[in-house]
Design a protein around this nucleic acid. Structure first.
Lengths: 232, 232
DNA sequence: GATTAAGTGCTACTTACGTAGTATTAATTT
DNA sequence: AAATTAATACTACGTAAGTAGCACTTAATC
């Protein structure tokens, strides 16, 4: 059982919001707190076939690896109040992906069996799952769309643009990632991403330092995102 | 209101199955039959913001177009008992895709407002939506995965393999498509797909005739699907 | 402080893909 | 049967992206 301090997290969570106040103790009783160290792939230790997770703190990437080339690419970059794994929750079969923490992460876990019972018991959770999955479909459609139709510099620009906080005007979620991780997010490789980052730097679009990217010229960045540089 | 002959279709439909027999007349009363001619894009005529569709007959592709290059790629190839558009159903906002029939198609339409009421009224529909969306997420993950990690010949081989009917051992759903449409399904272009099809023919893997692909050597095709031909 | 590891910047090279253009064949329409 | 359209086969070419390799810098570890 987890502490009262997590009630607020559940209240904000897309799946557990809009539930009557008196239900929360039941949830709290079933959750366990887990701390996963940085850069650990916990797929074997804690299979998602048995547990369902809510992220309380830190980032977790869901990714695939091509066994032949050992190339990796990130499907989802999850952070606070994201949950996984929805597909394992719905169907009792394996979801052929890996999970890895990008920071030390704090997770709330609940037996997947319990989560399934809750879905039946609380129709509101069932209902909330739909828009959450809808958003994932949108993200994937956009992802595929970009990989097919846009070149790397355009995808890189878009990646940066979609992670600008509207208020602070600064990068968030991806601001401290290595070029390797940035490449995984757009389906490319470190060397190629670096090549384009250098070009962006030359063009006065970005300021680049170790594990840090700052935007210098938003307008030019927008242009890069729109423009495809395919030959022809 | 549509005819009794469509009751069977609804019974088989993933969203309307497992409902009590006496409910069906209510559904029948709300549905309209629509016949869309071949190769028509009905996005403007019948916006999916107002209607929800079940396919009774024929194929409909959901696709995107890059306005700059005019390149097109297919996100989903829908057929009998598929439904659209789920995203418009869930959120009342636009889904930036196009729809086009590949055959003359017969569709059942219902006002999207009615469909939303049904979801509330019949929790079973709500529940059935989850695995349906889960499958779409899996399809998209696989799609993205392939586009990033696999080359065209591998994707083409996989496309063919996933459309072999297990019983008849023949191609279905994509067996009569032009190279253009095949290219759209794997995120490539007609000329490139043709190039690889010719190679497959030379290698004795396929037999190719106009708008028709036959498998001659399944083993070799499986090898093509597994192997990536990236340089290095 | 020394050593190791991780991250970055850059050059050189190869190639699969996309594009353009054109000839040929099959299907459809008149 | 003739004319038109759609689909296919093929050649030639430019290029972005991936790979390999290495020097260099910063951070982490002992």
């Amino acid at each position: 059982m987890i502490g009262e301090n997590y009630i607020e997290l559940l209240r904000e969570n897309i799946l557990f919001q809009d539930l009557e106040e008196e239900k929360y103790p039941e949830f709290l009783a079933a959750f366990q707190e887990e701390v996963w160290p940085k850069n650990t792939c916990n797929i074997t230790k804690t299979p998602t076939l048995y547990k369902f997770y809510i992220i309380a703190q830190g980032r977790v990437k869901i990714y695939r690896v091509d066994p032949e080339s050992a190339r990796e690419f990130t499907l989802f970059l999850l952070s606070k109040n994201d949950v996984f794994d929805i597909l394992c929750l719905l169907e009792n079969c394996e979801h052929r992906v890996f999970y890895e923490t990008l920071d030390e992460a704090t997770l709330l876990s609940v037996p997947i069996k319990t989560m399934r019972e809750w879905i039946v018991k609380f129709p509101q959770i069932n209902k909330s799952l739909l828009p959450y999955m809808g958003r994932q479909i949108r993200i994937l459609e956009e992802y595929t769309s970009n990989v097919v139709l846009a070149d790397i510099s355009s995808r890189l620009a878009k990646l940066i643009l979609t992670h600008i906080n509207k208020k602070s005007k600064k990068l968030e979620l991806i601001n401290d990632l290595s070029h390797d991780e940035l490449a995984n997010l757009i389906g490319s490789t470190r060397a190629v991403v670096n090549r384009h980052l250098q070009q962006f730097k030359k063009d006065g679009i970005l300021k680049i330092s170790r594990k840090k990217v700052e935007i210098k010229n938003l307008e030019l960045l927008l242009k890069q995102a729109e423009k495809n540089h395919f030959p022809g």
